[in-house]
Write a protein that binds this DNA or RNA. Structure first.
Lengths: 158, 158
DNA sequence: TATTGTTATACTCTATAACTATA
DNA sequence: TATAGTTATAGAGTATAACAATA
């Protein structure tokens, strides 16, 4: 028999059709993260920043003088893929590649005043967006979520 | 002054250089998820399945008769991008595109016996891997993490 | 020899438009 | 006209190898 009978493909409102995957914490994390990422991208679009550019800029502002290799490690991306991100931020005058006296291979990444100001504004905006998005959780839940996620990362990260 | 002095680029062990982003729950989620995804992919590689292929197969097994559009919605991917995934699973004899009598545009996705068996084995393996990966958390923490993530998704998802 | 930044490249993922066959 | 599956394609994102300059 090649065809499917009526009752087999019942119109059954497919709500929660992914419940067969809901046993996996990873799946729950992925679906939740995709909501957060969309909101985050919306918040940063006002400043013409992608999530990764914002992350790079924030770290450079918070820890000036890092080299590109160190920043790539911190962001867990490849050195080679960081180049265009740094190009973009430098091209907008938000950071500079400063030469390092002792080792002319390296670039010390330094924020400009404009970069510091944009980072502060973007960070405030992103934080406000996130706060609003997570308003459906209690303070205790948000704190617990953060704590558990950090604990997990700390105890599993290579 | 163009160069950076010695003390400015102190060799400061860059542990936790991303702490400037740690205020964001989304960042914590992303870093945790990347650990889970790597482990998940390792578990499924024994069965030559990618995460998305496993997810598709699992849903087809759990909810036979879904159409491709319904499955794409459940997985939150584009219909067009589901085609090659279905091609792959069907090519391996794990599922079939069964014709639907009432509407010859649609395909009812049905698992084969081989598909059901592979899905069961892969699911058990993935669950074991995840259980081992999350062993660093208490039962209460795992339960709470799942609960909070689901609550968040339920209350924010469009 | 090894490392830093860079380029080139390839492979995956994702998103969009347009086509066909059906309805 | 609208919908289901499909094709083609373009844009991100990601990973690897190799090169020039420097250590």
């Amino acid at each position: 028999m090649d065809t499917i009978a009526d009752q087999d493909i019942a119109i059954s409102a497919p709500q929660e059709t992914d419940r067969h995957l809901s046993g996996f914490i990873g799946y729950a994390m992925k679906r939740a993260l995709s909501i957060v990422q969309a909101d985050f991208a919306r918040a940063l679009s006002d400043y013409d920043l992608r999530a990764v550019s914002f992350s790079a800029l924030s770290i450079i502002v918070g820890e000036p003088g890092l080299t590109q290799t160190q920043l790539a490690d911190a962001l867990q991306i490849e050195r080679s893929n960081l180049v265009t991100i740094i190009d973009e931020l430098a091209g907008r005058g938000l950071i500079v590649r400063a030469p390092v006296a002792q080792d002319r291979r390296r670039h010390a990444l330094m924020p400009t005043t404009a970069g510091q100001q944009l980072a502060a504004k973007a960070k405030a905006s992103a934080a406000a967006h996130e706060s609003s998005l997570f308003a459906c959780l209690t303070e205790a839940e948000k704190t617990e979520l953060q704590r558990i996620l950090r604990k997990f990362r700390k105890l599993t990260a290579g």
